[in-house]
């Protein structure tokens, strides 16, 4: 397969992730959308790394995985503490502040 195929897949994953974030209401699903976007970026890094024939892109992907793991820890902590308060994880219910 050519690099283009991988990039098309990465872009598709990124768009699916972005649409998930914008459309879905459940904050855990929204969060999954964000993780999908990060993984799309990883796939693009790997494909480009292969294309240029060097390791920088793979290194980047490793860093991203670590950071994404840290983000999961923080994100789930926030979502769980909110759930214990409100018994819901819907982002639409979070609207106490005046707009």
């Amino acid at each position: 397969m050519t690099v283009t195929a991988y990039l098309a897949l990465a872009s598709a994953l990124f768009v699916i992730g972005a649409v998930t974030v914008l459309v879905r209401r459940n904050s855990i699903i929204v969060f999954m959308g964000i993780e999908l976007m990060l993984n799309a970026a990883n796939l693009a890094f790997l494909a480009f790394s292969r294309m240029w024939g060097e390791l920088d892109g793979q290194l980047a992907a490793l860093f991203v995985m670590v950071v994404a793991a840290a983000e999961v820890v923080v994100g789930l902590a926030i979502i769980v503490s909110l759930f214990r308060t409100r018994r819901t994880v819907s982002v639409d219910d979070e609207n106490l502040m005046r707009h």
């Binding site: 990039l7 990465a10 990124f14 992730g17 972005a18 974030v21 904050s27 929204v30 969060f31 964000i34 976007m37 990060l38 799309a40 970026a41 990883n42 693009a44 890094f45 494909a47 480009f48 790394s49 294309m51 920088d56 892109g57 980047a60 991203v64 983000e71 923080v74 994100g75 926030i78 979502i79 503490s81 909110l82 308060t85 982002v91 979070e94 609207n95 106490l96 502040m97």
Partner: peptide, 27 residues
């Protein structure tokens, strides 16, 4: 807590955009 969740979800979204952009610049 609401501020925390909003900041987190939108901040993570912005990070994802940044990262995807970084991948393409690298490409």
């Amino acid at each position: 807590q609401e501020a925390s969740l909003k900041y987190f979800l939108l901040g993570a979204l912005a990070s994802a955009f940044f990262l995807f952009g970084a991948a393409w610049v690298y490409g």
